[in-house]
Write a protein that binds this DNA or RNA. Structure first.
Lengths: 231, 231
DNA sequence: CGTATTCTTGACTTATATCAATGTCGGTGG
DNA sequence: CCACCGACATTGATATAAGTCAAGAATACG
């Protein structure tokens, strides 16, 4: 299947790549449409492919033995994901589920070494990406160790506005469907607590809620909440 | 300074490497003795070198803006650490402090690309290492999100027995000085709670405590505690 | 329209932090 | 060598953040 390079050219990951290289890369790629609720791959499944999200939004989750779920990260357009191969894993450590109508490119895992050998820029990018993820994970650990729930939720929401924020008249909208439960699973709390917190914020005019909707009206106010340790 | 290759040959990281390669590598390395309490590098400092721990034990910590400290990880002999360069960082994200008399090799950061170009095995190892760390971080996030303190502490202690356990008649000893405070900083709780938990375990014959000492008498019992969700 | 998610809100419970006091170990120096 | 000091640890009492339990309301969807 032929994929047009204009689709990916815009992503920082590819902007330095020559036309030929890019074409070559894309000849090996397959594209796949993923409706909301459908999984791209499942935790524990053989890591047969790696992916690039072109459009939409995914959440990567893990379930514990006792059946509880957490959200490991959110995948945004332009992100590589599922490259377990790069880390020498045989299986996917989590499940990737579309939360909005999504389109992803996929390559067979065994092409990964090729991928980075022929495109050193990508190797560097991939390393950087992993480094960032490690840092994000440590940030999250730090927050969960030292901050109370309200501030953790504030940080999580602020991060979402940066990664998936769309400016509107009233403020910045989180540009994909996200439930209270999702936020709870990103911050290590319960949907009840998240609901109470958001209600309180709504009362103060910081945000505007809705079913699977969230709009941040006062980024500065939220930032203060997130950063100023309770004095 | 000449460093004998017998010092590093034993580590899995180097066991596949030819004598010449290894010699070449070591000509660029400097060794450094680090007494307990001394830092190898500090959070935010320029990432001028990367390191290999030959002997001893380090803890990597981060401090929050509000001054709270957490332990990001423990460095064991044979571990590479401080390779911020690999992740395209300019500064060290944490502080590495010796908790026991330690010896580390160091290389200037700019040698890292060389390091992996000339020793593809190392590149692979490094990737794997980072992958493992990312996984560990996610495991920790999962535990902190879903498990109560006692089980988190149990998991942390079990991990330590695997990474730094020394068999003794009475059980498995954590082979470096570790305080209740340290365990608290690894699990996101307070030293008081850790102390209570360890006292309770000691009452049940699971562990044996002491000033900066910990001996696990019943690994199986601890594992049950860690894994069996409270039924 | 009715049914199923998702969300809100109140009442109650509990795990764990916080506050406070005392105990114990081990190294230093008199 | 012993006494003392400082770091580390224990333990009790109390406070509180956040979880659990429970019920109902709002919104989307077929």
């Amino acid at each position: 299947m032929k994929i047009d390079k204009s689709l990916v050219r815009a992503f920082p990951l590819f902007d330095k790549m020559s036309d030929e290289s890019l074409d070559k890369l894309l000849t090996h790629a397959a594209s796949r449409r993923v409706p909301p609720g459908e999984a791209v791959f499942e935790q524990g499944g053989a890591a047969s492919h790696f992916f690039l999200l072109l459009h939409g939004r995914l959440k990567v989750t893990q379930v514990t033995t006792s059946g509880q779920q957490i959200i490991v990260r959110v995948v945004h357009p332009g992100d590589l994901f599922g490259f377990a191969e790069a880390l020498k894993r045989k299986d996917y450590p989590g499940t990737a589920i579309a939360v909005a109508e999504s389109i992803a490119l996929s390559w067979p895992s065994q092409l990964w070494p090729d991928f980075i050998d022929h495109h050193p820029k990508l190797a560097v990018s991939a390393m950087q990406t992993i480094g960032q993820r490690l840092e994000e994970a440590h940030t999250r650990i730090r927050e969960m160790s030292t901050e109370e729930v309200e501030r953790r939720v504030a940080h999580a929401v602020l991060r979402l506005t940066k990664q998936a924020g769309k400016q509107e008249e009233a403020g910045i909208r989180i540009d994909f469907p996200i439930s209270r439960q999702d936020i709870a699973e990103m911050t290590g709390t319960t949907l009840h607590t998240v609901s109470r917190i958001l209600s309180a914020w709504e009362g103060k005019g910081l945000v505007e809620g809705g079913r699977q909707k969230l709009l941040v009206r006062d980024v500065q106010g939220l930032s203060n909440l997130a950063d100023n340790a309770k004095e």
